[in-house]
């Protein structure tokens, strides 16, 4: 009897866990990082291609792409993506995010504002924050993310 009771409790726990998981996975998030390389074809023409960034050397610029995909059955609203600028990386000032309002943090993610409003202290006053001082980037989407569709955003950062 004792064993059966335990089994039921375990099953229940499993059920709740998977329900929570389903909620979490309503919108999936994928992060990737790539390097841009110049490729010369047989005709000597140069094109820029992206290759996965697995190993990077100081000074190289990495393109981070974050994709939010609605895998649920209902529209997702108030979609907000947040990504800290990775340690040892400097944000270069290059960001994309169609349909999103992009804000940044210079205080470790406590507060966010548009780039033009960000300042950092200098002497007794403050100055506009340079991109390398940004600690977090946030994309706030105006429109709902419909089931089956995805938002992709990008930013570039240089390895220190």
């Amino acid at each position: 009897m004792m064993i059966r009771k335990l089994a039921i409790v375990a099953l229940a726990a499993l059920f709740f866990a998977s329900t929570a998981e389903a909620k979490q996975k309503h919108v999936e998030l994928e992060a990737k990082a790539e390097l841009e390389v110049e490729v010369v074809n047989e005709d000597g023409e140069k094109t820029i291609q992206r290759v996965p960034a697995v190993k990077v050397m100081p000074g190289e610029v990495v393109v981070y792409t974050i994709t939010a995909r609605n895998v649920g059955e209902e529209p997702a609203t108030n979609v907000v993506i947040t990504d800290p600028v990775p340690e040892h990386m400097d944000y270069t000032g290059s960001v994309t995010g169609d349909g999103a309002r992009v804000t940044f943090s210079v205080d470790g993610g406590k507060t966010y504002d548009v780039a033009s409003a960000l300042t950092v202290p200098v002497g007794g006053g403050s100055k506009p924050a340079p991109p390398e001082d940004y600690t977090h980037i946030r994309w706030t989407f105006n429109d709902a993310l419909e089931p089956g569709s995805a938002h992709s955003v990008e930013f570039r950062a240089r390895l220190q």
Binding site: K23, Q24, H26, V27, L29, A31, A33, V56, Y64, I66, A68, G72, E74, P75, A76, T77, N78, V79, V80, I81, T82, D83, P84, P86, E87, H88, M89, L145, L159
Partner: peptide, 16 residues
């Protein structure tokens, strides 16, 4: 150097 993004949203009236 690691990177992990996070996401918040609402679906069916519930936050996710």
């Amino acid at each position: 150097v690691t990177n992990q993004a996070s996401l918040t949203f609402e679906a069916g009236g519930a936050p996710g």
